[in-house]
């Protein structure tokens, strides 16, 4: 599969969080996504709502098909990842909140409407991990030094 993903200097990585309302991990995924687009990497990322992808909103589909996406799922059903793929997008990295929690057991999230302190901290840790991926994607998108001729024989 060779999708033409935009890779210019203005590249924006699409962040797609889970939209679950019934579990704390869904809330962590959203909090992490907001943290990335508002605080950690505001210039390089933008958020696409899952509901718009479900509806088939043209603008949102265009976003995920043109730019690489980082998905953050709250449960194993992985709706965010599946919906980006379903919408013709490329998932550069799919995060699962549970996996991040497994690596940071002390940060046990609680609360759905409002996260506890550990949950907010977990979201921040997750946001940093997302930021690393965003930076890597951004780096890959920079114009390359002219070494391409080597492959042309």
């Amino acid at each position: 599969m060779n999708k033409a993903i935009k890779s210019d200097n203005k590249q924006k990585v699409v962040i797609v969080p889970c939209s679950g309302i019934g579990k704390t991990y869904g809330t962590v995924s959203r909090e992490a996504a907001y943290e990335v687009v508002e605080n950690v990497r505001p210039g390089q990322t933008h958020l696409v709502a899952l509901s718009l992808l479900v509806l088939g909103d043209e603008k949102s589909r265009e976003s995920v098909s043109q730019y690489p996406s980082v998905t953050i799922d709250g449960c194993k059903l992985a709706c965010a990842t599946k919906m980006v793929e379903e919408s013709g997008g490329t998932v550069a990295k799919d995060f699962a909140v549970l996996d991040v929690y497994r690596n940071h057991r002390k940060l046990k999230p609680k609360g759905i409407a409002e996260l506890n302190e550990a949950g907010i901290k977990l979201a921040q840790v997750l946001a940093e991990e997302v930021a690393e991926v965003v930076d890597r994607l951004d780096f890959d998108a920079q114009p390359k030094q002219s070494t391409e001729g080597c492959n042309n024989g």
Binding site: S51, V54, M83
Partner: peptide, 28 residues
């Protein structure tokens, strides 16, 4: 919408309501 739904599901009508994540209509 999210917080209002949660309020109904957890506080106002917990015995009478259920929910589903919208994306599951496609991803489920």
């Amino acid at each position: 919408t999210r917080l209002a739904a949660l309020k109904v599901l957890e506080q106002l009508r917990p015995a009478d309501t259920v929910t589903i994540c919208l994306p599951l209509f496609l991803a489920g």
